[in-house]
Write a protein that binds this DNA or RNA. Structure first.
Lengths: 187, 187
DNA sequence: CGGAATAAGGAATCCGGATTCCGTATTGAA
DNA sequence: TTCAATACGGAATCCGGATTCCTTATTCCG
């Protein structure tokens, strides 16, 4: 009815450029956080600013796209740990994994800090992330790996703090995890 | 010899305005953090932008002046707890005090996060702050309030995290302190 | 191959804010 | 009261970036 399918399909080079941009942005954001300039991204991607903007109409759109992607990865990792049996894994394993990821991705540490920190339901993926963490927590609680009264909020705060510690290059973040994990256990 | 003391002393109104600016800036920074506009500060202080700039040649100078002041307060508070005997006080008491302060001062939470997070020796007051925390830690260690192997770095990370938790309005920061404190105890 | 449909490029523009400048208003020592 | 020394005010300027717009280059369907 309303499908004048006269449109050709996306040009191949257009798609290639989109990938280049994403790739470049991922690297730059990971290295220096989200305050990288759009022109930097364009240059790194070997693309004109105009092109960059056709792909992502806004700086935030670009950040969002990448954050979403990364978040998905985290959720996937979490799900895997959800099934694992090894107690070393589960919540603890996830925290270390997150640490590893954030330690190598400044931009992500910024995102995670906000996601775990704020009460904003922003995005389904964010939602999913919180859900999986809650799931991980439940399992840990059953196993007795963490105190019975530990809440998802507690864990979120710990993760929020973890992000800050890493982003500020505080000290040994693994140590931070050890401490907080012990704290959650004690409760 | 070289003192052509022909200079009059600072005009009274000049001094008054300086105070107004500081006062206004304190309030605004506390409310909304350091991204407040200079013009905002000037308006709130009931002063022209020009005047604001004569007092503080740079946005950072203003922020610095206030941060320094606040940091001094914290150090004082810490020193007091250093002498207290009540175990409830000491390190634990300090953490709660810091929480209380940061919860009511967004700008300060930003500063603290950096100070405790980074390894930059910036400023003698910052230096003093770190020193007092270390002192507090030592006492706690002796009392057995915290694990024998807890380092100043560990505490700094916890504080850095605390600042982030509060700044992002995460959850109940007192709870965060409870958890981390337990963690430090366990170690 | 030929031309319409798409995309690429990147200079020009727009914008929010910080900082500067200079004419005017106050202050206070004589 | 008088006048030089100081301080005030705030419009004008400067700046770093994001975003837009229009010209030229590619792609790919027929």
């Amino acid at each position: 009815m309303s499908t004048p399918q006269t449109r050709r399909k996306t040009r191949t080079d257009a798609e290639r450029n989109r990938d280049r941009v994403l790739q470049a942005a991922r690297v730059l954001f990971a290295e220096s956080g989200h305050d990288v300039q759009m022109s930097e991204v364009a240059r790194a991607a070997g693309v004109g600013i105009g092109t960059l903007y056709r792909k992502f109409p806004t700086r935030d759109a670009l950040i969002e796209a990448i954050a979403e992607h990364r978040a998905t990865d985290l959720v996937a990792a979490a799900r895997q740990l959800t099934d694992a049996e090894d107690p070393t894994q589960g919540l603890a394993g996830f925290l270390y994994h997150v640490g590893e990821v954030l330690a190598g991705d400044r931009g992500m540490s910024e995102v995670i800090e906000k996601v775990m920190g704020s009460a904003e339901p922003r995005g389904q993926t964010r939602e999913a992330l919180l859900a999986v963490v809650a799931e991980l927590l439940d399992r840990a609680r059953v196993r007795g790996t963490v105190g019975q009264d530990v809440t998802a909020g507690d864990v979120n705060m710990v993760i929020c703090g973890l992000a800050a510690v890493i982003r500020n290059a505080a000290g040994d973040w693994r140590r931070y995890i050890e401490v907080t994990l012990d704290g959650l256990r004690t409760r």
